[in-house]
């Protein structure tokens, strides 16, 4: 076993030169990071959900499945890109201000994600009705 001066001792971000604060996390509870991961999880769930829905719809109508799949893919990628931009902007604003009365991003992306989920649900309802007609 190697001691504390062993070759594999990680520096854990202590040795960054020109410490501007930007390379450090804003908050020890990693709040922006946990929020960003939660957003990313939701974006990936929307992506997976719309592709799964397209796969199920392919049993009924291939053109419909391709349309739903393509639209779901585009919307999910747009949301995932917006999520990364949102985290970057939050991190920069929070580390710059030291956490005092910071203006964070607003409700446009939440409303877009909620609306996308409602649309996905409506398409899912149509898919379920078409499937039930086919089975019986």
């Amino acid at each position: 076993m190697s001691g504390p001066t062993g070759p594999a001792a990680p520096d854990c971000g202590r040795g960054r030169d020109g410490d501007s604060g930007r390379d450090r996390v804003w908050n020890a509870g990693l709040q922006p990071e946990r929020t960003a991961l939660s957003w990313r999880r939701t974006g990936l769930a929307l992506l997976g959900g719309s592709l799964l829905l397209a796969r199920v719809l392919a049993e009924v109508s291939v053109p419909l499945a391709l349309t739903v799949g393509a639209l779901g893919l585009l919307a999910s990628i747009a949301i995932l890109v917006a999520v990364e931009r949102r985290y970057r902007s939050h991190h920069l604003r929070l580390t710059a201000a030291g956490g005092q009365r910071v203006t964070l991003a607003g409700g446009a992306l939440p409303l877009l994600v909620a609306a996308t989920t409602v649309v996905l649900g409506c398409v899912a309802a149509i898919a379920a009705i078409l499937l039930s007609l086919r089975v019986s």
């Binding site: 908050n27 939660s38 996905l120 649900g121 899912a124 379920a128």
Partner: peptide, 26 residues
């Protein structure tokens, strides 16, 4: 800001619940 971020995560949990309900129905 921590409260605003926590509010966002609660919102996202509800969206996750919605997606799970839709997936179960399909």
């Amino acid at each position: 800001p921590r409260f605003t971020l926590a509010n966002e995560r609660t919102f996202l949990s509800w969206i996750g619940a919605a997606l799970a309900l839709i997936a179960a129905g399909v």
